[in-house]
Design a protein around this nucleic acid. Structure first.
Lengths: 237, 237
DNA sequence: GCAAAAGTGTTACACGTACACCCATGC
DNA sequence: GCATGGGTGTACGTGTAACACTTTTGC
């Protein structure tokens, strides 16, 4: 048996080159809905369909650098509060033309920012997407799944929420992302007890229909941390 | 602003082609240690160093198919009880020669099988690795981390354990994989309560030093399932 | 005062851990 | 009988869910 196929490149000069692209499902909450950033294709293939932002991997960049660079063409990078790898999509016929592998990412943007977008680009609710190009819908659903899972056991809410917020606003963000109503009472308790949330000491005025003026909270960290200490089979202690 | 870099290939005929390879950290438990499958390079680059199994992605296969095909050159595919994507390694200088992106996988093999291996290939304890090639040590450590995490909240033990086993044997498998001693008592209770484990009704003879003859158990499923129902912020019920 | 919204207290429940205790075998 | 390893019962700690109750505002 030979290991020729694990030897370094070069010795197979006529092998089919594989293109590589990076794509991101960029999500945010707006008007109590989870929205995704999409741009409408002008030219074939799939004209008029909606595509994820991204593009070809450059020769001297990592996939992480590449997706951030290419997202900067759509939105201000300072507004991207979280980016993480999802997985590789590699079906040979996932797009027409020469074979292209895609590394998919999840990107998040806070609900209070309203980035200027190119003319062909806008936000679409993830639960009623327009006709999407290629396998981009599957990538988007994978992004949503990853977000939903991490909302449960990490502090990833910081990436969707504004710097300061009331517990009600945070509940609406979590509810929209998860797709079901969460309780403000327990959300506050869970995140506080985990040390993910803290009060700023400030309050804002009550709404027009009255009610107690809500306090403003913030996330204690803007870096992703696993906060659910309930992983099992943990070391004896 | 242009979307030229998200257009399909072809329109950039002279872009640098990107090679793509697939690599797997294949793990098993033997003699109470977590071991990885490595083969020793004969030729440069990195002669004599140890490499992960894998190789170049073929033009008409997915990365999942490719890693299974290439692992079949090392071990019988029927022995591979679990394969999953880890992440993409894409540093431009991760290997010498033309630019190559790697999709990394975790592969698992049960502790009772002893596959015939090629001459240059053998098992190495993950906690005392030989000199590895390129970025393969990092990939291996990522594979171990993924395994350790999933042992806590999934039934992934099925992929490391033989078809039938005593709770003591299972405890040794979990202990070796996690790197600390787990309690057989609680391991049995946790996995049973989750519905991941069931008694076969059979028992085996006690050891030479006596003791009650242990019962044989099996995993109820050989497909990966998330068994930890303790994810929080779950829908109202 | 009353409705509305925010926030706290309390109880119930689920899960995992620790440890005492019982079981079945070899010698 | 006694040592040895297997297996069960029980108490406890911790974390979340559900819901009643109090607080603070607008009208």
């Amino acid at each position: 048996m030979s290991h020729s196929n694990t030897e370094p490149r070069r010795d197979h000069p006529n092998v089919t080159p594989t293109g590589h692209e990076v794509l991101a499902g960029v999500l945010r909450i707006r008007a109590n809905r989870l929205q995704a950033l999409l741009w409408q294709r002008a030219k074939p293939p799939h004209p008029n369909r909606w595509s994820l932002p991204g593009g070809r991997l450059g020769p001297d960049e990592t996939v992480e650098y590449s997706i951030r660079r290419q997202l900067a063409e759509k939105v201000d990078v300072r507004e991207l509060t979280h980016v993480e790898q999802l997985s590789v999509f590699s079906s040979p016929d996932r797009i027409p033309g020469s074979r292209t592998v895609a590394t998919a990412f999840l990107g998040l943007i806070p609900s209070d920012t309203d980035p200027e977008l190119p003319d062909d680009t806008c936000w679409h609710p993830v639960d009623s997407l327009p006709e999407t190009a290629f396998d981009h819908e599957g990538i988007l659903l994978a992004a949503r799944e990853r977000l939903r899972a991490k909302l449960s056991y990490t502090n990833i809410g910081f990436a969707l929420a504004p710097p300061k917020f009331t517990v009600s606003e945070l509940r609406d963000i979590y509810s929209a992302a998860l797709g079901y109503r969460v309780s403000a009472t327990n959300l506050q308790r869970v995140l506080s007890r985990r040390g993910a949330l803290e009060a700023t000491g400030q309050t804002v005025a009550a709404g027009p229909s009255g009610g107690r003026p809500p306090a403003l909270f913030r996330f204690t960290s803007r870096d992703l941390q696993i906060t659910d200490a309930f992983a099992v089979l943990r070391p004896p202690g």
